[in-house]
């Protein structure tokens, strides 16, 4: 009896876990290539709106998933392209894409919602969130974790992983070693942002309905989750799980421990900073430190004396 209850508690966390884990996994993977990803919150929010809209129009949440991934990938690759092709500030490019993401999400979401309302009024209830049966919830744990392990192997064992780390550490040296920096960063964006897009669809499933501003700040939470785990795919399972549980049971926790909601909301962010301090102040620095060239402008013909 008790164990069933525990299991059901855990299963409730599944959509939040899937959303946060996939997004932060993608975030870490992409940033390993050296592009500072400040676009994440905007694109995450956009992914939710696009997933919602595609789900509403097609009536099929899997179409929504694909659409969310495609939208995220489009903007992620745009960020990777402009920051690598041109020696520009990653921060400025990322934040402008973030704003664009917020804006487009609002426009798309509002339009889709009125369509949804119209359909409902005429008796049609289009399905736009992923299924949430117990089996589906178990899969929401299992599939992301398997993806995470796969990503760990890609990062550490393959030439692609070495190339991504190389361009993140030092794009000039990587070029000299024979790496096509732009190609590698585009691949990192393609893969990383498809996960971020998938994460936003998970988020939509978790919150169950779209409203204006849906997902705002949750991209940043994914960002913090990824940082707190030093962008390590396996460690991220832990931080994502913790953050997801915290988010899902925020209210319960507040009640149980008489915690102010403000304090509860603060925890993830403080943990993220604490984790950064822990990595940089201890020998973990070598393993989990950010890529050396993260956010640095890249110009191939730079004078490198």
């Amino acid at each position: 009896m008790r164990s069933i209850e525990v299991i059901s508690y855990i299963l409730t966390v599944a959509p939040a876990f899937m959303a946060y884990y996939l997004a932060s996994l993608g975030q870490g993977f992409f940033e390993k290539s050296g592009v500072l990803n400040l676009a994440i919150d905007g694109v995450f929010v956009l992914g939710i709106a696009v997933g919602y809209a595609a789900g509403v129009y097609s009536g099929n949440p899997w179409v929504g998933l694909l659409a969310a991934m495609a939208a995220a990938v489009l903007f992620g690759m745009m960020l990777a392209y402009v920051t690598t092709k041109f020696p520009i500030s990653h921060g400025a490019a990322g934040l402008s894409i973030m704003f664009l993401g917020y804006g487009l999400a609002g426009l798309i979401g509002v339009t889709a919602r009125s369509t949804y309302n119209r359909l409902v009024a005429s008796g049609i209830y289009p399905q736009y969130t992923l299924p949430t049966s117990p089996t589906a919830r178990i899969l929401m744990f299992v599939i992301p974790v398997l993806v995470g392990i796969l990503f760990y192997l890609i990062e550490t064992r393959t030439k692609l992983g070495a190339a991504i780390r190389a361009v993140g550490e030092n794009p000039h040296a990587a070029t000299a070693l024979g790496v096509d920096v732009i190609k590698i960063r585009l691949i990192a964006a393609l893969i990383g942002y498809s996960l971020i897009g998938a994460g936003s669809m998970g988020f939509l499933t978790w919150i169950a309905t779209w409203s204006e501003g849906a997902g705002v700040n949750h991209g940043w939470i994914a960002y913090a989750i990824s940082l707190a785990a030093g962008r390590h795919p396996i460690l991220t399972i832990g931080t994502a799980g913790a953050f997801a549980a915290l988010a899902t049971y925020m209210f319960a926790l507040q009640a149980a421990y008489n915690l102010s909601p403000e304090i509860a909301k603060m925890i993830p962010f403080i943990v993220a900073i604490g984790a950064m301090v822990a990595f940089m102040a201890t020998p973990l620095r070598k393993k989990l430190a950010p890529p050396l060239s993260l956010g640095k402008r890249f110009f191939k013909e730079e004078r490198t004396v």
């Binding site: 402009v82 490019a93 917020y102």
Partner: peptide, 23 residues
């Protein structure tokens, strides 16, 4: 016409264009 989204779209596009063009 639309919500605060319009502001974001304006700012996002102008800034992104500028960030690239200033190169």
């Amino acid at each position: 016409v639309s919500g605060a989204s319009a502001t974001y779209v304006f700012i996002g596009t102008v800034l992104l264009t500028f960030t690239v063009l200033r190169v």
